[in-house]
Design a protein around this nucleic acid. Structure first.
Length: 638
RNA sequence: GCUGGGAUAGCUCAGUCGGUAGAGCAACUGAUUCGUAAUCAGUAGGUCGGAGGUUCGAAUCCUCUUUCCAGCACCA
């Protein structure tokens, strides 16, 4: 008997009943069959060797697809678990999924894995791969499965089994002597896993809960060929060079000193200059967009933080109080209560709204020791914070405006790949459901109106309101939250904020928190990594290095420098008693965008020889001409 | 905070079995006056993160502590 199978391109062919996806691939070409790792039949992922029983649509996936990779890595995780149990029979297995880049598997093992263990496990995996063990699927009743795993002493699997909902198919996958509870699908056999690298070990809590036991996790990655693995490893090496902690030191941007305190940043002159350039731009844009700039203190009375709710919710991450005249004061973890104080300094009418207040406010939060990370997670940082206080009617427009504004500013820093999230109501939340819906839909409407691709983080909102977050990835592909637009149902209520409406009655305003760059510290971290230290010209601490060929041309070099400075260009002259190769190398390593080399020819003709960082010699140009070019690039923020 | 691994000159790193520390770059001095990513020579620079302990003797072994790295947890 034959069945009809249709392909993604719309074509249709007949095959014998019970044919496997692998054989379908084989019928197309042996090359495809060699490379295919997964199949979706009637929109359901199944094993390649599973029989197709009826007319169906089919999609075949190779390793180069996301689905293909996921299955490939998931199967590798099983292979690793098998290898681990062969070497350490007492180890209990837990879970081991594929992740964005590779896979991990968590084991319950008393003695943590060492690097030497990884080498052994990797070797064992390669050995098992060569045996081309088949991944066999078996469906089984819950009782049988529980008994089986209980007999093996696999208590974690029993716990998982007990929680699988009634009526769901329970499947086991085995290869060789290794059996795992798993939904599948998997590769046909271990021989398809060619190139394996175990990358790191670490502790990880069972089920991600710190109250549970800490398990031992191994991360790894695998590829169909060594070439792809080596490419991936080379990419990781490259990424390390972009690390902001390394570049921050090399470019003399900031430092963090043990003597001063963990998580407290010292901004060096280069970082300070960039910060001030950013702040100037930030202020200019905010004034243009109708914000007021305010300034508020770093500490406030305990009562204030009780009213705001911060002490109730965040006391464990706030610094201990300071005693002042027998009163307790706390370092501010947020600026909002102070901005509300400004709002409440006088009676507000609906005619005053919206009120938009912005501040570069430095806040302090006690981050747990293991959480700190370069500039990304620190204990003292400056938020480019703003609060928008408006009437309910103004909400949609204000959200739209702030979203547009945020993205427009991020563009000046040339970020292109942004991840945008809409985070909705969490379980523990204040405020009415209808208000949450209204606010969430305002956020969603704005995202849609701006044609922005976003993901929904279900239940990921703050307890006081839904939010839009913009995240930027670092060199190692880790995401960091920068911009955030957060609705707040909590503070207007707690502080009993009001305005007098057209009806001459008091009303409660809506409030939106918003940080654009987020924390300046974190923003710098992402900025450094994103550009690998090659900042857009307008941000560079030194834009032009004037390099005289020898002492004889110092006078001319200084004249050029004066002209550049007069034009508002940040420049300096390299007066070291060195050859120009040496000076150029220095300027290149500092990633200074322009080098002007001047010698006899240039002095005679009133020109400079222009060299661009990372590009090379651009030939000689009239001074005035190149000044115009540089100013233009600077103003366009290219 | 948790698990594991680190901390040696300003930076990057070496230091074997426990015998009181070494290189390159940077800095400083001198020579050189140079055409697009390192001119040569010399000088100086260290309580080996900190505190205890073991030992005749500790950078090295042990304990505690600070801090960094990777991951987990957390991230208003």
């Amino acid at each position: 008997m034959n069945i009809k199978i249709s392909f993604p391109d719309g074509s249709e062919r007949e095959f014998p009943k019970d044919i496997s996806s692998y054989d379908v691939a084989m019928s197309i070409s042996p090359g495809l069959a060699r490379n295919v790792v997964a199949a979706k039949v009637n929109d359901k992922l199944i094993d390649l060797n599973a029989p197709i029983k009826e007319d169906a649509s089919i999609e075949l996936y190779k390793f180069d697809s996301e689905i293909g990779q996921e299955i490939y890595w998931h199967s590798t995780a099983h292979l690793m678990a098998q290898a681990v149990q062969e070497i350490y029979p007492d180890v209990k297995v837990t879970i081991g999924p594929a992740i964005e880049n590779g896979f991990y598997y968590d084991f319950d093992k008393e003695i943590p894995f060492t690097d030497a263990d990884l080498v052994k496990i990797e070797a064992k995996m390669k050995e098992l791969s060569k045996q081309k063990l088949e991944y066999k699927r078996e469906e089984i009743s819950r009782e049988d499965a529980i008994k089986k795993f209980a007999d093996m002493g696999e208590t974690y699997k029993v716990e998982l089994l007990e929680e699988i909902p009634e009526g769901e198919v329970i499947s086991l996958y085995s290869q060789g002597n290794f059996v795992d509870l798993c939904r599948g699908p998997h590769l046909p056999n271990t021989g398809m896993i060619k190139s394996i690298k175990l990358l790191k070990t670490s502790g990880a809590y069972w089920r991600g809960d710190e109250k549970n036991k800490m398990l031992q996790r191994i991360y790894g990655i695998s590829f169909p060929s060594n070439k792809e693995l080596n490419k991936y490893l080379a990419m990781l090496e490259e990424a390390k060079k972009r690390d902001h902690r390394k570049l921050g030191k090399e470019l003399d941007i900031y430092s963090i000193s043990d003597d001063i305190g963990a998580g407290l940043v010292l901004w060096h002159p280069n970082g300070g200059l960039m910060r001030s350039v950013i702040e100037d731009y930030w202020k200019k844009r905010h004034f243009e967009d109708g914000y007021s700039i305010v300034n508020t203190p770093h500490i406030g009375k305990k009562e204030l933080w009780i009213t705001s709710g911060h002490l109730e919710f965040y006391e464990d991450v706030m610094y201990n109080p300071i005693m002042v005249d027998d009163q307790e004061y706390y370092l501010k973890p947020m600026n909002c209560p102070f901005h509300i104080g400004i709002y409440q300094a006088s009676k507000k009418s609906y005619r005053d709204l919206p009120i938009k207040m912005a501040e570069m406010g430095t806040v302090y939060r006690y981050e747990k020791s293991g959480a700190m990370h370069g500039l990304m997670r620190v204990r003292g940082f400056t938020q480019d914070d703003a609060h928008i206080i408006c009437t309910p009617e103004q909400l949609d427009d204000e959200i739209m405006d702030v979203l547009r504004f945020s993205i427009s500013i991020l563009k000046a820093f040339r970020f292109k790949e942004l991840e945008i999230y809409l985070s909705t109501m969490p379980e523990k939340a204040v405020g009415e459901k209808e208000d949450w819906d209204k606010a969430t839909s305002a956020l969603e409407k704005a995202l849609k109106a701006e044609n922005i691709d976003y993901k929904v983080d279900e239940g990921g909102g703050a307890f006081y309101g839904p939010k839009i977050d913009i995240k930027i990835k670092d060199a190692l592909n880790r995401s960091w939250q920068c911009s955030t637009i957060q609705f707040d149902f909590n503070l207007p209520e707690r502080f009993e904020m009001e305005y007098i409406g057209a009806d001459n009655k008091p009303h409660r305003p809506f409030m939106v928190h918003r940080a654009l760059l987020g924390s300046l510290e974190r923003f710098f971290g992402t900025l450094i990594e994103y550009h690998a230290g090659n900042f857009p010209l307008w941000l560079c601490p030194v834009q032009v290095e004037v390099i005289p060929i020898s002492e004889h041309y110092e006078k001319y070099a200084k004249d050029v420098n004066v002209k550049l400075k007069a034009a508002g260009i940040r420049s300096e002259v390299d007066l070291q008693n060195e050859k120009i190769g040496y000076k150029i190398r220095g300027a290149e390593m500092r990633k200074i965008p322009f080098m002007f080399i001047v010698g006899a020819k240039e002095q005679e003709n009133g020109t400079v020889s222009v060299r661009r960082h990372g590009v090379g010699d651009l030939g000689s140009k009239e001074i005035n001409e190149i000044i115009v070019e540089i100013k233009q690039e600077n103003d366009e923020k290219k």
